[in-house]
Nucleic acid binder design. Structure first.
Lengths: 244, 244
DNA sequence: CGAAGTATTGAACATAGTCAATAACAGTGG
DNA sequence: CCACTGTTATTGACTATGTTCAATACTTCG
């Protein structure tokens, strides 16, 4: 007898359950949410500024990001998404999308219709809370990044982003020991930290030289978690992870 | 016969109504929300990192801000609040506060108990949406600030912040003609834009010299809205104001 | 009026950016 | 399996924007 595949909403439910106790009926309803999956290549726009989507996107596999461009074409990446994240949950209540969302690696996406979520919330009003919660954590991460980009020097900035990724990936089981896969180019890291690729490269070298990270392909190995956290002034409070 | 004073929730309701149609019963319930008012001096912390409040704060008069500090004591201001804003609405669902909120000018605050809001939402589930909406707009503003601080040069950054304030203040009726009161020191503007006070001072001078703003005390006069918007690369989409 | 906070100025300096060239790597098809 | 191609990473030299430090003027308010 074949084992049933987990539902597409598996990671989403897992995340919700780390903060909320779901009744078995609520959980079942979430498991049965209609999800339409799509595969996309790296570097593809998933949602664009000005769109008025009727569905939300759930990242099932891969990495994506939110970004905006200045008129001169400078790009700021404002958040990185990992499996289980819902990058455009805001579109449920903000009619016009004011950001761009793009894949950073090959991604598997699950699209959930707004009307299905609205229905879900009508039938189970208690479920509104964890979804609202998710958007509040997103906002918290934006704030921390603002502190990062506005006040920390390059060395700390990069260390901070790596710390955040480690903890978030750990929460969805994507960390093996002290290492994880980070399919992000230095140019993209530069856009995420408000630096130039050249400077990112130099900072990464000094992080390596100081023994805070090892890199192999796009695998990041963290030999000394304590030291990396200190370098990035990292305090995980803002991630609001319950099971630290 | 004396005219009844508007309820403390007046500005909040006004903001909600710019996006949602309230039934008269919903409106009445909102007007009757218990609000405890407090006056605070400039530069006072209202909420601190680590707090676990049982109430939300509604700004009735004055300006406040959200900020965080780095270990070396550098401060990043992440948002400015104007009357009608609810700076810590997030505390409804995030147990531990991960930011500091401080008054920038003398402020009148209204505190609303979480339990009263939860009751409100139980009785009128439809009202969850506008409050969720408010936190989504906050997040949108954080993102825009991240773009501002990460990718724009000083001149545009300051122009952008002024543009944002003008539109938001206009929405609550605090703009007279093309000018408004901005009780924020240059040092605070520096913390909001990730610059030094010295540099802010120089940028303000060049904005004045180019005729984009006039300043008088802490009154800002905007003689050429078009030019200021261009200088700040300002596009109001991210504010999600309905009545533009 | 006097004190404290705020704004302004100048000069030296530094972090990070720009430009440009080269090296390493990953994916492709013969 | 290897040459070919485009992308990504690395390096160096020069430059800029914005910082730091420190001194001076201006406001505001009791």
């Amino acid at each position: 007898m074949p084992t049933a595949l987990p539902p597409h909403t598996y990671l989403m439910i897992r995340k919700i359950e780390s903060n909320y106790t779901l009744t078995s009926e609520e959980k079942l309803t979430l498991q049965k949410l209609p999800v339409q999956t799509v595969d996309v290549k790296p570097g593809q726009d998933i949602v664009k500024m000005g769109d008025q989507p009727t569905q939300c996107c759930l990242l099932l596999e891969g990495f994506s990001c939110v970004y905006k461009l200045t008129l001169e074409g400078k790009r700021q990446i404002m958040a990185l998404h990992i499996p289980g994240d819902m990058p455009d949950l805001q579109s449920l209540h903000l009619q016009v999308i004011d950001i761009n969302i793009a894949s950073l690696s090959p991604c598997k996406l699950g699209f959930i219709q707004h009307r299905d979520l609205h229905l879900l919330f009508e039938q189970h009003p208690r479920l509104i809370t964890p979804f609202w919660h998710e958007t509040l954590v997103d906002a918290s991460i934006f704030r921390e990044w603002l502190l990062n980009v506005g006040q920390r020097e390059g060395y700390s900035r990069i260390a901070h982003v790596i710390c955040e990724l480690l903890l978030r990936l750990k929460a969805v089981g994507l960390v093996e020991g002290n290492s994880f896969h980070m399919p992000i180019s230095q140019a993209e890291l530069a856009d995420a930290t408000g630096m130039t690729p050249v400077h990112v490269n130099r900072v990464l070298q000094s992080l390596r030289n100081n023994g805070l990270i090892h890199t192999n392909r796009r695998q990041i190995i963290i030999p000394d978690w304590q030291k990396l956290q200190e370098a990035g002034e990292f305090d995980s409070l803002y991630l609001h992870l319950k099971n630290d």
